[in-house]
């Protein structure tokens, strides 16, 4: 694993000087179903600073995916605002596409286009933007290097393992230099070992690209290992229950997971999640 040594002395992200990248204000989402309406998110308020890595954690059905999809411009909120870099993402149920441009999204499934090679998949956002072929293939190669797929540029998605496909999806999300990377349980379908490796990779990528990251997961250790802060959502309706700071410097090695600071945060979050059962 290659980690740029100049990054190791970075301050951790409580750095209050950094501008706010995302501001979520009074966000609410109600789904209409045949049996009435379901409140998926209620009064969500959150500020995320530039280059911060925020994990969103909660049980299935707590609305974390809904929250991420609202931030990704895929689901319209019922009420409230999402601002990215000071600009509103949603205007009365329609997305501002100049804001979407600044986002990269990674889903639980890689969702690669099976009829395109890895290279073409990674460069797809650039192709749609009309970037010239030479330039976008160069960028695809560069990104494939970043995610360790340089030998598979000409392969097709189904020839790759799940972990490799997810790397390609991450590279695709990064291809247009997003300021904000949104990830919805991207490693949920991977085995534990691949997942650990991907966690190290995503930390390295976040540091290297200086992107702000919002990372949805239901795994406490993963959330704490990756996040500068861990936001805990509770279900029905989805609300922010608490926000835990993770006081660990970066880059973090796998070994921090045996340390006391790490385990204190994990224990607190676990207690907080278990409390939900008693309510």
């Amino acid at each position: 694993m290659h980690v740029d040594s100049t990054l190791s002395s970075l301050p951790i992200a409580e750095d209050a000087d950094r501008p706010v990248e995302i501001r979520i204000d009074g966000l609410q989402k109600t789904y209409k179903t045949e049996r009435g309406s379901v409140e998926a998110l209620s009064d969500i308020n959150l500020e995320i600073r530039r280059r911060e890595f925020v994990s969103l954690i909660g049980r299935s059905g707590c609305g974390k995916t809904t929250l991420l999809r609202i931030m990704a411009g895929l689901v319209a909120p019922t009420a409230g605002q999402v601002e990215v870099g000071g600009k509103s993402l949603w205007h009365n149920g329609t997305v501002d596409s100049s804001v979407i441009k600044r986002l990269g999204v990674v889903f639980q499934d890689a969702n690669l286009f099976p009829w395109y090679s890895i290279e073409e998949n990674i460069a797809l956002p650039l192709k749609l933007r009309g970037v010239k072929k030479r330039e976008r293939l160069e960028r695809a190669r560069e990104l494939a290097g970043l995610v360790g797929l340089e030998k598979f540029l000409r392969s097709y998605p189904r020839e790759l393992s799940g972990g490799m496909r997810q790397r390609a999806a991450i590279a695709r999300a990064l291809s247009d230099n997003p300021e904000l990377l949104l990830m919805d349980e991207p490693f949920g379908a991977l085995d534990a070992l691949t997942r650990e490796k991907m966690n190290l990779e995503i930390q390295r990528i976040a540091l290297a690209t200086e992107a702000t990251v919002v990372f949805v997961t239901h795994d406490i250790e993963e959330a704490v290992f990756l996040g500068d802060r861990v936001v805990h959502l509770t279900p029905r309706p989805g609300r922010i229950k608490d926000i835990a700071d993770v006081p660990l410097s970066r880059p973090r090695a796998m070994e921090v997971q045996t340390g006391q600071e790490f385990n204190t945060v994990v224990a607190e979050l676990r207690a907080s999640l278990n409390q939900e059962d008693d309510q």
Partner: peptide
């Protein structure tokens, strides 16, 4: 696949690209 629809939407695919690609 709904996943591909998500990717297409988050990349702001135009109708032409959406249909032919």
């Amino acid at each position: 696949s709904p996943g591909l629809i998500d990717v297409a939407r988050s990349n702001r695919l135009r109708n032409f690209d959406w249909i032919f690609r």
